[in-house]
Nucleic acid binder design. Structure first.
Ligand code: FES
Ligand code: FES
Lengths: 157, 157
DNA sequence: ATAATTCCTGACTAAATTAGTCGGGAATTA
DNA sequence: TAATTCCCGACTAATTTAGTCAGGAATTAT
């Protein structure tokens, strides 16, 4: 489990989509502008998120990305795993052969820490934030500020 | 809070020292060989651990590094913080000004996640592993394998 | 005193990862 | 048909991680 700014970008972008789920697909261009992430970099990240089965793209005007499954079934761990590949922090990759073919002194430490960390991050689902009144308030305010979804009739309905 | 292999190196090295606390100071040369980390890189990491007040160096023959305070008062969070500097994952650094001077959509997410993650890693102290029989067994076996502390009379006493 | 050991320091290089760029293409909608 | 958007691959730049080198300072053992 590696936890860096790359994972933060991915989670941030996924949050943005989840927060606008009822409006419809969200374009990467929008995310790029509102979250301050380079468009092309987002495309790289979303290639991985797509492979990870977390999002699906909708092409053409009015398109964008939407969640591939309900927000309560997407965890922060899922997202980080999709973009950073590995989930465990052992040096050996779980095989216990760091130290001349044997388990090294810290194998157990990293193994257990990985399990606990994974369990922790798996417990945080996107919908926990989507359904919070204080966050919804903020989203609405900022969408107006950025002029998002002005060309979407269904956004109001 | 950034969680990468650099932090793993640091925690691994600290674990090694903690596991040999009763023997005396542990040399970086030993850690380098047994844990497979470059000696000079270890020196860089220990410069930070020293500045962080986690270890103190003892020079001269028979010297090495020892913990600056009891193992039950050193957490994984302390170590990672010492070598990776920052503890919080917000883009803004806690000030809430990502999005044109305002809190961005995900500020709360990262703030709360940082707090929880910090609390989690703070709860893991070095002594939890030092006092485990299965680990102690492994340490003894591997020290013999690597021929450690052969020149230390006090190691047996 | 001398030599050996070990920490300590700073500057430098190499490799890997992260981040961003570019140029184009394919599917969809209006 | 034109506009929009995802999609794809190769490229570059910046940052971080990892390792190297060449010394110096404190301590202990002889
Ligand atoms: S991390 Fe698994 S044996 Fe070292
Ligand atoms: S992370 Fe704090 S405002 Fe965006």
């Amino acid at each position: 489990m590696r936890l860096s700014t790359k994972g933060r970008y991915a989670v941030t972008a996924m949050m943005d989509i989840a927060l606008h789920e009822r409006v419809g697909p969200v374009t990467l261009a929008d995310i790029s502008q509102c979250q301050g992430i380079s468009l092309s970099y987002l495309e790289q990240l979303f290639a991985k998120l797509r492979k990870g089965g977390l999002v699906e793209g909708v092409r053409g005007p009015g398109g964008g990305y939407r969640l591939a499954r309900p927000a309560d079934q997407i965890s922060v761990a899922d997202i980080i795993q999709s973009v950073d590949e590995k989930l465990d922090m052992t040096k050996c990759g779980g095989k216990g052969n760091c130290s001349q073919g044997e388990k090294c002194l810290t194998h157990q430490l990293w193994f257990e820490l990985s399990c606990n960390l994974y369990r922790f991050l798996s417990g945080i689902k996107l919908d926990q934030y989507v359904n919070r009144p204080d966050i919804s308030e903020l989203v609405k305010k900022q969408d107006i500020q950025y002029g998002r979804f002005l060309n979407r009739p269904q956004a109001i309905a």
